[in-house]
Design a protein around this nucleic acid. Sequence first.
DNA 1: TCTGGGGTCCTAGGACCC
DNA 2: TCTGGGGTCCTAGGACCC
Length: 430
Amino acid sequence: MQQPIFALIDCNNFFVSCERLFRPDLEGRPVVVLSSNDGCVVSRSNEAKAIGVPMAAPVFKHRDRFRQHGVVQFSANFELYGDLSERITRVLTSITPRTEVYSVDESFLDLSQLEIDDYHAWGRAVRERLLREVGIPVSIGIAPTKTLAKLASEYAKTEPALGGVLDLFSQTAEVRNNYLLKTPIKEIWGIGWRLAPKLKADGIFTALDVAQMRPRHAAQLMGVHGRQLVAELGGQSCHPLQPFGKVRQTVMNGRMFGEDTDEFSVIESAIASLTARAAYSLRHEGLLARSAVVSLSTNRFKPGYQRQQQAISFVTPTADTGQITAQLVQAVQSDFNQYEQYHRANILLFDLVGEQSFQTDLFGDANLEQSNSAHDRLEAFDAINSRYGKRTIRFAAEDLSKAWQPKYQLRSPRYTTNWQELPIARILKR
DNA sequence: TCTGGGGTCCTAGGACCC
DNA sequence: TCTGGGGTCCTAGGACCC
């Protein structure tokens, strides 16, 4: 088996870059994209980083700074970002099918089967092509392991002299070690805020220190991940390319409400809507759930924070929106307290099985006819929505109330996925 | 007043069994 | 009834990622 050669293609400030694609007037200005309810900063342009807006900053703490520097704000427009992400994936898979879509803005490619003389030049060409065909700038790191490719892409992003590409694969061990030496541990993929102080207490400060740890020692401090981390930083690959993605284990859907509520009908409406989305994901991927959890909570930043949670399991695995909603609403009702101000609802579907392979319960045969008719009904339901637009038909419970819906006051048009919101070009005669 | 959403994997500890 | 070792399964929580 040939050694893999990984390229990590990482979109620069992805959400902000998507917004700028349709607003070229925002080039050079500080821009941020905000999470649901316009609560936190989730993407920042370089100019926004430069004036000191931290990642995940709560917006209300930075209002003054935003005003002072004329920071342009957008509510997250995931439909737009998802569509542009797919366009990038299409280009990358045309380069090689050995592509793993790691997240909405990152993909790993295995280059070991391609004939490439000069990896840096290859990276530059891919970068140019994505800029030309999709319009999104990327950074590219190339290395013998995913962890090193990730590290390389960070330098490709921040050191302009590299032209957006860092090839650590073709470098000598000495050059590679120099990069490891100047990388603080918290920048390493897999070391977060809990492990970093623990390692520092042990005298480990740089990626090179980690690479030189005894594997046993690393395992003691960080569990099995530690051992893998030492190997990966040393150039020995532990995380193979997963071109077909990982099999999904759960479907989660949760929202903070636009405003807090003590009305059960509002909560019922939220659960119905969250379930509709989650169950659709199941059907879309040909999956059924055997179990679910639903939880309600009050605002965790207010005194008296409460969280209640109920688990249910289904007699027969299901992706039926109506059935799941009914059971979740019933479960939540038992603990509902009319004197609480609820702030958030979450649902989690798990114990997933493929719809082909699921085993019926003891009474499966008796239910078969019923379950087939439910299946046909949902198929028609999804077909209508796919043809005429999302939520063209929906369950009545979803519309009991809109009070829970998050606010997206600053959302840009869905330029590429909604006919009503296409950009309009005007040609001026002169 | 205002603090995101959606995931994965590992581990420690309890319950239960022989 | 108590004692001890060792195995399995389940669950809650921790840690990480984007």
